[in-house]
Amino acid sequence: MTPRYLELVCPAGTPAALRAAIEAGADTVYCGFADATNARNYPGLNFDRDDMKEGIAFAHRHGRHVLVAINTFPRAGETAIWHRAVDDAAALGADAVILADIGVLDYASRRHPDLRLHLSVQAAASNPISLAFYRERFGIRRAVLPRVLTVPEIAHMVATMGVEAEVFAFGSLGTMTEGRCILSSYMTGRSPSSDGVCAPAEHVRFDEEGEEMVIRLGGITMNRFPRNQAAAYPTPCKARLVTRGVPSYLFDEPVGLNVIDILPSLKEAGVTALKIEGRQRSRAYVTQVVRAFRAELDALDRGAPSPGIDLSGLVEGGKETFGAYKKGWR
């Protein structure tokens, strides 16, 4: 099989970031509406309907695509908001919607048979049988694979799943299976699954206590950083916790995913698209990361050596990882 072109899918939390991503060389931009229907529902972020219309028009003028993430799980009695988001994304000309909830997938596939559906990583489809469920019943065309698979496992999935595979290439790496972690709502009451927000800002406190910076989520101490030590996100999965009297990063160290060094093997594995994480990040981040990946992918296409662009300064803890792509992470 000839390895195909790797599509670069980039985050945009604001219209300015969407333009920045496209100017930096994104093939596709993903973004969401400014409400709980998307999994990065942070204050001041995301697109109202007019922003979305303009953003899609801008991308299409440049020959690029826009995916609208409607990738959270409506609570009982609240499904109408998600239905409206799907309807609006279709009406505004989105190239695809990224969905996770079975009910929302069912609605979109019945109501908008021509709308391209992508399966969100939040659906946590970690095996070919789960993928077949979404493919056969809702006609998904692409799935974003959970960040828990090794490259050989991805290759096996791609060979059997019957839809395009999108994998994470760069950004923050949760260690829990996506869409299956409610630690944050246990402490704050707002849910990553249904409110689209992990470690909601109104429950996060950064306090300076003597020489330490203390991070609390819902009043629960997540971490204490001595001066000059690299900091982590205030999410429970990056907390420093104590077991048997020993403090440690029990779930994961503050590190960020970067697959630049294994791009050729992901391409060989038959992956269709690479996803940059970070709709909550600034357009400065978007510009730098997208530009770097554009250069790396162009070099890979030409058979030229990797430009070796260093992005380590942008990731959590200033440290990069291959995450689950390499054996031993589990």
Binding site: A124, P146, R180, C181, I182, F251, A324, R330
Partner: peptide
């Protein structure tokens, strides 16, 4: 149950890998 993962935190807390 608050989270499901591929990684084993019980093993990790003992300095072991899941494998």
């Amino acid at each position: 149950t608050l989270s499901v993962a591929a990684r084993c935190y019980h093993a990790r807390s003992r300095g072991l890998h899941r494998d």
